[in-house]
Design a protein around this nucleic acid. Structure first.
Length: 587
DNA sequence: GCCGTTTTCGGCCCGACTGTTTTCAGTCG
């Protein structure tokens, strides 16, 4: 479990205690909001804490910042622990079951003395087998059945699905939906539409003039394993791969409002409604109510216009200041996939045994894809030779041979194409060693157009050590780009600890470029950090880190990530013409 | 507990769905 999931869960538990013991629904909501905000954060909260930025997280104020400070310093919060003593601990695991909230969980845990977290779920199963759950007043047959059903389909410890796994699942369902004559349009909503790095479940919006027929059609999709709830306009299902999905139907005249509503984020919508409520407006998935008249919207653009705002792209609807920017017409013009003019991090098929993780596609295969994408340049950056047994001269010869190999293929390509030639850059991805030196000699470096420097080992150094090694590595004049900066891999490796503000300041001052690595399991930098770096005037390059030609399609993931970080075309160097790029790389 | 262009008190998004209810509570997103 990541630090953010863990912290979000802690606050959710505190919220539950306020709900059941104090009856304090507002404090409950405050804790829930903070919990949601933390869960949506792409940067580990502990890193935010280290740089003193806790209160910049929406939903975290003075008090929560103090509690979290205690939590990260000592590993516990005394105030929270005294609250937890007021309830049986067994209620907390029960809350992870769909349909069981704080109140139901408390009733069950209290009645059956479920005081152990570890056994609470199995205890509940036993209670159900004995048929004793209806001993609780207000628990009739249907409630018992509902809990039984939820337990049967519960997938415990489920992790959020990476975006690249969720997207094809969603596309396949959408393809099915739009085949129906009753369905006019269908879109994935929620975190998938906002292009979050991981998604918890998938929401689908369905536009139809005949909702009942549309819903019946949708629910006959062959890959649905169970229908959890079924309503006229909303149903909740589980797909055979275990993923849960919500289906929401909208009439055509309110399609825009519905897209807006279910795209969220939750905190974006809450903030939007809070500030418009003061002007006598009430917002819902059906439209905007003003003076008791409901105004319908067929598009989101019209919806935001009615509120006096510019259209806010889904990728930044995270309650991070975008609403105020839209009100003052100062939203950034986010980078688009079509702005991209090249890819500077591709692994070639040059086979040298002393490297690792070689590419498999030839230059002509890579250039064929680049041609389709109308790229103007491609940069090859294989890993540096790593064998300890090699002398510097031997390594240098490898670099030279590789250069000749790529140039020979390039000349062959040049002869074939007459009209427009894609430019070739020969770089290398060079390790940043623990001590901050880079793993290639001056002589070898001089053979390269540029070096991407990346951390591939010793991820566990302290914040100070990592900051120092990165800045030192980037200080070399050939080191133009910091590759996959945090080293994180989604759902598997935590990012390294580093003082990013200091690194960003260094990069802005010394014109070093930070990579937004588009490889779907990396998506590195996280969007929160991109946003900070953009504010400091740092420039980025969006690279696919491709090891075969098909992976060049991953560029879109990097662009989405950049958009989530408020990056514009001018912030991304591989939107530049080749001449401007040359000047940025000092070639 | 959070938050602020009617700020340091007094509010706190909105609706669907379900179940146990004759008007509402709980959960979810």
């Amino acid at each position: 479990m990541t630090i953010n999931t863990e912290t979000a869960q802690l606050l959710k538990r505190v919220a539950a205690v306020f709900r059941v013991k104090e009856g304090d629904t507002f404090r409950y909501k405050a804790y829930i909001n903070a919990s949601v905000a933390i869960d949506n954060l792409s940067e580990p909260l502990v890193e935010v804490w280290k740089r003193g930025g806790l209160d910049s997280v929406p939903g975290i104020g003075e008090n929560l910042a103090a509690y979290l400070n205690e939590y990260f310093s000592t590993g516990k919060v005394k105030h929270f622990n005294s609250l937890f003593k007021k309830v049986p601990s067994g209620m907390f695991p029960l809350m992870t079951i769909r349909g069981i909230g704080p109140i139901t969980a408390y009733k069950i845990a209290k009645k059956f003395h479920l005081n152990e977290e570890k056994t609470a779920i199995s205890d509940l199963k036993e209670i159900l087998i004995k048929g004793e759950l209806n001993k609780i007043k207000s628990f009739k047959e249907k409630t018992v059945q509902k809990i039984q059903k939820a337990l049967n389909i519960q997938s415990f410890g489920k992790t959020r699905l990476p975006l690249y796994e969720a997207l094809p699942i969603a596309s396949e369902f959408i393809d099915y939906l739009i085949k129906s004559k009753y369905i006019l349009a269908a879109e994935p909503l929620g975190s998938l539409r906002r292009k979050l790095e991981t998604v918890g479940d998938i929401d689908f919006g369905i536009c139809s003039s005949t909702p009942k027929k549309a819903m019946d059609y949708a629910l006959t999709y062959s890959k649905i394993s169970s229908v959890i709830t079924k309503g006229g306009m909303v149903s909740h299902i589980k797909l055979i791969n275990g993923l849960e999905a919500d289906l929401k139907i909208s009439l055509p005249n309110s399609w825009g409002s519905m897209l807006q509503h279910y795209t969220g984020s939750k905190l974006h919508n809450i903030h939007l409604r809070t500030i418009t409520k003061e002007k006598g407006l009430s917002l819902s998935e059906y439209g905007i109510t003003k003076k008791e008249k409901l105004n319908h919207f067929t598009s989101e653009t019209k919806f935001y216009q009615f509120l006096g705002m510019d259209y806010i792209p889904p990728e930044i609807r995270e309650n991070g200041g975008e609403i105020e920017l839209a009100q003052s017409h100062k939203l950034p013009r986010l980078i688009e996939l079509t702005d991209i003019k090249g890819d500077l991090h591709i692994h070639s098929d040059y086979d040298f045994e002393s490297s690792h993780d070689l590419g498999v596609s030839s230059l002509s295969e890579i250039f064929a894809v680049a041609e389709q994408k109308k790229y103007q340049y491609v940069g090859f950056t294989d890993h540096n030779p790593k064998f300890l047994g090699l002398t510097e001269n031997q390594k240098n010869k490898i670099i030279l041979d590789r250069k000749k190999y790529l140039e020979a293929q390039f000349h062959a390509y040049e002869k074939r194409v007459k009209h427009r030639v894609i430019k070739l850059l020969i770089g290398m991805e060079v390790d940043i060693r623990t001590d901050g030196t880079i793993a290639l000699s001056e002589k070898s470096l001089s053979l390269l157009d540029y070096a991407i420097v990346s951390i591939h080992s010793s991820f566990g150094l302290t914040q100070e050590e990592n900051t120092k090694r990165i800045i030192q590595a980037l200080s070399h004049k050939k080191a133009k780009i910091l590759g996959h900066p945090t080293g994180r891999t989604i759902n598997s490796r935590e990012p390294i600890s580093a003082n990013w503000a200091e690194i960003f300041d260094f990069c802005a001052k010394n014109k070093k470029i930070i990579e937004i690595n588009a490889y779907p399991t990396r998506l590195d930098l996280p969007s929160d950090l991109i946003k900070q770096a953009v504010q400091k005037g740092v420039r980025f390059v969006i690279n696919t880190d491709s090891h075969e030609d098909s992976q060049m399609e991953n560029m879109k993931y990097g662009v989405w990530q950049a958009r989530r970080g408020y990056a514009e075309k001018k912030d991304i160097v591989n939107t530049f013409s080749f001449e401007n790029l040359r000047s940025v790389l000092e070639l």
